[in-house]
């Protein structure tokens, strides 16, 4: 780890001013469960780290104007424990609880979960965001069992790791972002983008912007998440799906189906949504949605099993949403 300056601002304006306009020069620190590892492994070597710990107004959950606003530094444990979240957004509770490690849930934040860097082992072993060695891409012929099956023509073939993002996108949530020239709001889906250069990041946030809160409309959507996890304890899911839809007399309307761990971004499946819309929600439509979600997948040499798992997670998420 390279020595760095540490800033502990009190206001969001102050915090934003401390940030530089190029990635890697400065980094934002929330719970630190991801950033500190990245610092130690020299995946990033900033000159300055800006902590959000003491920034006022970034933490907490409030209901206002028909939305639930969740501050960026709200701990995952507080998200799980919140009564409104429990009642309205089971898809988020399942996702956050399944992270499985009390240590991470107690320290990790909602903003940090959304903006954590990919877990791709080539990236984490120091071969860069796209995993290259002596100019050649390592993922296509290497061990790509956990890599993308959609949007994976390269150079990005990692998967987005956030467990909360698919649920938030399915619920139609937006984020507020604070930059040097004020604030902007954008749908969570638009927070993520597949990078084209390995100096890019996997999100559309700018280097000098801070995510301040997530806003979820409380529209009474039915929703659920299903994840395939190998172990019970701390682990990464293999594939996940979050679904949300309006329940119009037992039929789904305005459905959204979002997959996790299948693409460099959370993966919105319009085909799966179309298979649900207007249909009676049940085993039959759940299976059809699952099959539709898997359409168009382009698995790599070792991750064909994920295509099958996509069908299963979507089916099971739909079934869980009926509970």
């Amino acid at each position: 780890m390279k020595p760095f300056a540490y800033a502990n601002p009190k206001t969001i304006e102050e915090a934003v001013k401390l940030l530089g306009d190029a990635w890697g020069k400065t980094e934002v620190l929330a719970g630190g469960t991801d950033l500190v590892t990245s610092l130690k492994q020299n995946l990033t070597s900033p000159d300055k780290v800006v902590s959000l710990k003491d920034v006022e107004g970034l933490s907490g959950i409030v209901a206002a104007d028909g939305s639930l606003k969740i501050g960026a530094t709200t701990k995952l444990k507080d998200l799980i424990a919140n009564a409104e979240v429990k009642k309205n957004f089971p898809c988020l509770v399942t996702a956050a609880e399944s992270i499985g490690s009390p240590q991470i849930i107690n320290v990790g934040t909602v903003g940090g979960d959304l903006l954590q860097r990919p877990r791709c082992w080539f990236f984490r072993q120091g071969y860069g965001l796209f995993g290259t060695y002596e100019g050649a891409a390592l993922v296509p012929d290497g061990d790509n069992r956990y890599h993308a099956i959609f949007d994976n023509k390269g150079p990005a073939q990692f998967v987005n790791p956030s467990s909360l993002a698919p649920g938030l996108i399915a619920l139609g949530a937006t984020v507020r972002v604070h930059g040097p020239s004020g604030t902007r709001d954008l749908p969570v889906a638009e927070l993520f983008a597949t990078p084209k250069a390995d100096t890019d990041r996997e999100y559309t946030l700018k280097p000098n912007e801070i995510l301040t809160y997530v806003s979820i409309p409380m529209k009474g959507l039915k929703n659920a998440t299903y994840e395939i996890r190998q172990r019970i304890g701390l682990d990464w899911p293999m594939v996940t799906a979050s679904v949300a839809y309006e329940d119009s007399g037992g039929k789904a309307a305005n459905a959204k189906v979002v997959l996790g761990h299948v693409a460099p971004t959370p993966w919105v499946s319009d085909k799966a949504a179309a298979a649900l819309n207007g249909q009676a929600v049940g085993e039959d439509s759940a299976m059809k949605a699952g099959a539709a979600a898997a359409e168009g997948a382009t698995p790599l040499s070792m991750n064909g099993y994920k295509v099958h798992q996509v069908k299963v997670v979507v089916k099971r998420a739909v079934m869980a949403s009926m509970a």
């Binding site: 877990r119 082992w121 080539f122 984490r124 072993q125 071969y127 060695y133 050649a136 390592l138 012929d141 290497g142 061990d143 956990y146 190998q230 172990r231 019970i232 304890g233 701390l234 682990d235 990464w236």
Partner: peptide, 28 residues
């Protein structure tokens, strides 16, 4: 769970951490 995974081009072990070098936990 357990498997040492190596990259065929570099020879590097890819899961030299406790995240993807999986060990059983109490729940497992």
């Amino acid at each position: 769970y357990e498997e040492a995974i190596y990259d065929n081009k570099t020879g590097a072990m890819l899961n030299s951490d406790m995240e993807f070098y999986r060990l059983a936990g109490l729940g497992d």
